[in-house]
């Protein structure tokens, strides 16, 4: 009680998310055809460890993060350390098979670790590009994500915790946009 979002906020997020997905569809062709910077080396499809490093950065992947992960990189090279953000030019290149695989990798990572800002950005971006109707394995994965978010939320001690909005957003989108209603926060 007191940690879950209002119904009005949830409805607004679903509406915004729907608009964003439509805009992504319009932008996909443009951004997927843009040349990536030389430093953006996307992992191969089955390179699970490579995707973790790519999205979350070496510091988190290696468990050596001691600085603010939101800190602005001083150069493009630093993205290797803090992870590449989900730029449209990157996520627009992912087909549905790759997208779902990366989503599963990150959810699996989250199952054993704490929530971090760059994880939230990537999960949101991947959900925004996940096409409906969902495959059965996608249903299972996003439900796992919502349950983990709720579990992690239950460990927070303050409503002011900066992780709370992100957790609520992900739960909201899985439950209300992707119609997993039994997982929704009720008013």
């Amino acid at each position: 009680v007191g940690f879950s979002p209002s119904l009005r906020w949830q409805q607004q997020q679903v509406s915004n998310f729907s608009d964003i997905r439509q805009s992504i569809a319009k932008n996909r062709k443009h951004w997927s055809s843009q040349t990536l910077d030389d430093n953006v080396l996307m992992p191969k499809l089955a390179d699970e460890e490579g995707w973790k490093r790519f999205c979350l950065g070496e510091k988190l992947y290696l468990g050596t993060s001691s600085c603010d992960p939101d800190e602005e990189p001083e150069s493009a090279l630093d993205y290797c350390k803090v992870g590449f953000p989900p730029f449209l030019s990157i996520v627009s290149r992912l087909n549905q098979t790759t997208l779902l695989m990366v989503l599963e990798i990150l959810i699996s990572w989250f199952e054993e670790r704490e929530f971090v800002p760059q994880l939230g950005r990537w999960l949101y971006a991947l959900l925004a590009c996940l096409e409906k109707p969902l495959l059965p394995e996608a249903h299972s994965s996003i439900r796992q994500l919502a349950r983990r978010c709720a579990q992690f939320r239950s460990t927070l001690e303050s409503r002011e915790d900066e992780k709370l909005p992100a957790l609520n957003l992900l739960i909201c989108l899985v439950a209300r946009y992707f119609e997993q209603s039994d997982l929704a926060d009720q008013p």
């Binding site: 007191g2 979002p5 209002s6 062709k29 939230g120 409503r159």
Partner: peptide, 28 residues
């Protein structure tokens, strides 16, 4: 088909959308 440049999002649009959603959070 040529796209209208005004319809093309910035490369960081998804990140901005996420940050905006998170910032807008309100509890019940």
């Amino acid at each position: 088909e040529k796209s209208d440049d005004s319809d093309i999002w910035d490369d960081t649009a998804l990140i901005k959308a996420y940050d905006k959603a998170v910032t807008s959070f309100k509890t019940a």
